[in-house]
Design a protein around this nucleic acid. Structure first.
Lengths: 202, 202, 202, 202
DNA sequence: GATGAATGAGTTTTCATTCAT
DNA sequence: TATGAATGAAAACTCATTCAT
């Protein structure tokens, strides 16, 4: 992980972890409400439960908070997906189940996903790269599910495209909620998308 | 359209149009490079070729510029699409041609699309609604193509979902360029997406 | 008068007079509502019925407008007072009648008087002097009434003080309206003030 | 008092008090010289001895400074008057002494009084109301002196009018200094005004 | 004479960051 | 380690004034 690269003047690693979790939690709440730019460091500090001075003991710049947040969101997604996807007995139905789990997760994490879509560009090159790599990993996980369940029936390119489509379809449920969630229930949305995917892999 | 709702202290409507086009052009260039928040009104003014005072003769607030930009992007997309889509002789191949045209357009307008994805949330409710409505219109156009070419073969819901998928697939070529354009040429991307769509409508 | 000292690029003296009257009328209306500082030259121009460019054909600076206004207010007071005060048959009752006339006038011109109290300090030294001289003239008129009617019964100092008191009592009916006009009708106010003045000159 | 209603981002109440006193002192100096509108917040900050950023830690808007100043002026007057007026043994001579004290105070605070006359209108409704109430209190104090010393000899209306006259006569020594102080010494001014008052209450 | 678009210096206000305690 | 007062660069926006048409 790259989080360690963010410097802190505090020595106690355990404390750093605790404080940063507070920061991430507070910041996500605020970013959901008003976005990164309209949130001030003072607000982040107070939402995190400590003073502005203390905040700056655990980060160097406001952008560090954004990085921490983006990284943490990916971390959460990764963890949850790892828990839910079961590739013990690979099969098309199990692949569908996995995708369904992913969609459920994306529904739960809508606001977080929107943060990623809107604020990643505010990261410096280096951090942005790291975050995009996490995103790439996510695609890799889906690709892996597909490959395992379809036993190489599809070309690598097709698998990659399908995986990306699935990932983005999960996102769009959230970032296009103003249109998708007006016309579909989550179940209907998933059913229809899955049907199309089934057609595509036949 | 809503552009007219942005007040200007200048009376000459023709001049307003010309100046606002300058503003939009300058602002898009800057927003592509550094985003809305990191672009200053002074930069917009000077990139547009006039003084800060003159800028403010044609807009009320910085947010007006963002609205002008978002609206103009949709306007461009709409115009171009209208030109290219030909529904005289509806057929599946013509539908594919239309989608291909749309993908080409999205390729050309990648940066603009990214602006929409990242900055629309900075608009006030009212303006955001207007912009999202333009987006809805875009989906409507695609739905129309599908319906015309498939002669009602698919349910309304399926059509809507398919149209949204196509629209977003056009966008993702741009906003996920760091992953898609590393693995696909534009042609390959379109070919593969179109194949999947063909499967889905069979 | 000093109004002539304000330069204009227009030659036609009659036109200058007409335009400046428009300016004064418009400006007084605006100054009453929002004060000198919060009124813009654009507003003055449009309230006067012409363009900003035309406004600047008849004045040099925004301060000129203020001077025009202050001078005009004094001019109006002077004119009206001259009309109303009749010193043909001097007597204490006639003096009281004159003071009463003055109070009525001050009641009518409350807002204008408030402008003087609040904005004269924004004039440049030169113009301020001129305006203060008009004010001095006003005191002179009242002194004259007193002297004529009391036939020199009071010392010059007493007359001067009494005149200043009367003048300011006229003003305070307006600039302390939030307290005076809550407790007194204009008639009651005048009656009581006149009674006190009568005591003082006995 | 209402000063507490002005928000500060600083927590230390004692420090707020100290800093605001600095602000008030600096601002009064500047307002005396150039008025509220021509004084910039930067000038206020530097005159107060700190940076513009620090100024804004103790106030919200420039208008807050004006309110602080107006409120403080009334506060000073109130304190000083309370000290000087002695109603232990009420009598006409003691009343005269009290008025004299008030006149002395007004002489000392001329510039401050002029600030009130010229700038109160720049306060928002709420703050203006508060300041005018302080002014009403001042009248109340004088009324109280009169009532106590004259044991109800005069009607309530007469007392109110007399008190207002006295208050304004105190002010006019300052705001009409260009005429009064050219013709009277402070002593002569007070003597003559007091004589007239004596006539009035007989 | 009249117009109104263009100008840019100047103003208020914000907020990330630092550092003494 | 934690605090929060101090800082000042930077930003949006205004408006008196000019001048070409």
């Amino acid at each position: 992980m790259k989080e360690e690269k963010i410097l802190s003047s505090v020595k106690d690693q355990q404390l750093i972890k605790v404080r940063r979790e507070q920061i991430i939690k507070g910041a996500i709440k605020l970013f959901k409400e008003k976005g990164f730019h309209k949130t001030t460091t003072r607000e982040i500090a107070s939402e995190s439960g400590f003073s502005i001075g203390t905040l700056y003991e655990y980060i160097r710049t406001k952008e560090d908070v954004l990085f921490l947040v983006c990284d943490s969101i990916h971390e959460q997604v990764r963890e949850r997906i790892a828990q839910e996807i079961d590739l013990e007995s690979p099969s098309v139905p199990n692949m569908m189940k996995a995708i369904r789990s992913y969609f459920y997760l994306m529904d739960e994490m809508q606001d977080e996903i929107v943060i990623l879509y809107q604020e990643v560009k505010s990261l410096k090159k280096e951090s942005r790269k790291h975050v995009l790599n996490s995103e790439r990993d996510m695609v890799g996980i889906i690709e892996n599910v597909i490959n395992t369940c379809l036993e190489g029936k599809l070309s690598a390119q097709k698998v990659s495209l399908l995986a990306n489509n699935i990932v983005v379809q999960g996102h769009m449920w959230g970032f296009r909620r103003w249109i998708m969630q007006k016309q579909f229930t989550l179940e209907a949305y998933m059913d229809e998308q899955l049907k199309m995917i089934e057609h595509a892999i036949k």
